[in-house]
């Protein structure tokens, strides 16, 4: 590792922080734009002018919005995203209850999706243009174009209702051994994996194909290197950047983008928490969830960038 590379990484970090700040501003403005005064929404029919004024003061709503943005940002930086307007519990507690569930689902899904997607992506790239490549390609398009909730409903119907191999619900509280947990999460993970594998393997294939068609790989081939050796030793390291980027994108989606699966399988995760918060206009909770998802995305992309920088010989030498 040299100084130039460290500088590059530091630049990425700074850009990430800047983006996060912009995200905070966007999230704050978007939630501010929600119609209806929060105080009026909270008080409902008992919203007398005096009560509204009092509550507005208590919620700092009577202050200019740039100042409220600063207060909120200050709270966030200090690790305090506020208190839920609906049940008066700290937002940290509400999120803390759901975060482990979401992380569990995301990590299991990722550990299934990533190896399979890489395998499919690499093999289709190796034998591009073959019947195998075309069949996998069609299958992936076919699966990706079916709505997620239909896949989930169909899977529940087949594996839980008809065959009775697996449970229809994904959540059972209390301690469970590893296999019991796997059984519970099998269908949701399978559903998410189907969607994720399609995306990820196509991107892997695209990145590899570009490299495989470059001149230096052609050179290696002429030198008599076998196809496996070409892919693993010559092509993969150079395509690692885009591939890791694709993995990061798909994985960040697993945290906040799984609302449909959480609904169908009655799984108490973060996406459902945010949807509930939106429906009850619980702004601090909405803002905190949105910030969490964005931060997770940015962190993953940052990691992907760093991996790309570290792995790319050309970038390494620059």
């Amino acid at each position: 590792m040299n100084a130039a590379m460290l500088r590059l990484i530091a630049l990425r970090l700074a850009l990430g922080a800047l983006t996060l700040f912009i995200v905070a501003a966007l999230v704050f403005t978007a939630t501010e734009l929600l119609p209806g005064d929060v105080a009026e929404a909270l008080l409902g029919q008992s919203a007398t002018p005096a009560a509204v004024a009092g509550l507005r003061a208590a919620l700092h709503l009577d202050q200019p919005s740039w100042w409220r943005f600063c207060l909120w940002l200050g709270g966030l930086l200090g690790g305090d995203p506020g208190v839920s307007l609906v049940n008066r519990l700290p937002v940290v507690v509400l999120i803390g209850n759901r975060l482990p569930n979401s992380l569990k689902l995301a990590s299991i899904t990722a550990s299934v999706t990533v190896p399979l997607a890489l395998l499919l992506g690499i093999t289709t790239a190796m034998w591009r243009g073959s019947r195998y490549d075309r069949m996998v390609g069609m299958a992936i398009i076919g699966i990706v174009s079916v709505p997620e909730f239909l896949i989930a409903s169909l899977a529940v119907l087949v594996f839980a209702v008809k065959l009775r191999w697996l449970p229809a619900l994904a959540f059972r509280a209390g301690p469970q051994d590893f296999w019991a947990m796997m059984r519970l999460l099998a269908i949701p993970v399978g559903t998410l994996a189907l969607v994720g594998i399609g995306q990820m393997s196509r991107m892997t294939r695209a990145a590899l194909v570009t490299v495989l068609e470059s001149s230096y790989v052609e050179m290696a081939r002429l030198k008599g290197a076998g196809p496996l050796r070409i892919v693993l030793i010559h092509a993969l390291p150079n395509a690692l950047g885009p591939i890791v980027n694709a993995i990061a994108l798909s994985t960040s989606f697993l945290l906040g983008g799984v609302i449909i699966v959480e609904t169908i399988f009655n799984y108490p995760g973060l996406a459902k928490l945010m949807v509930d918060a939106v429906s009850t206009r619980d702004l601090p909770l909405v803002q905190a969830c949105a910030m969490l998802f964005c931060a997770a995305y940015l962190a993953l992309v940052l990691v992907a960038d760093v991996v790309a920088i570290l792995s790319n010989p050309r970038l390494r030498q620059r």
Partner: peptide, 19 residues
């Protein structure tokens, strides 16, 4: 870039349920 980082379905949900 900041906009991309918000999950699309949730972003759509917030905007549509408010408007």
């Amino acid at each position: 870039d900041a906009m991309i980082s918000v999950p699309s379905l949730l972003a759509a949900l917030v905007v549509v349920s408010s408007l």
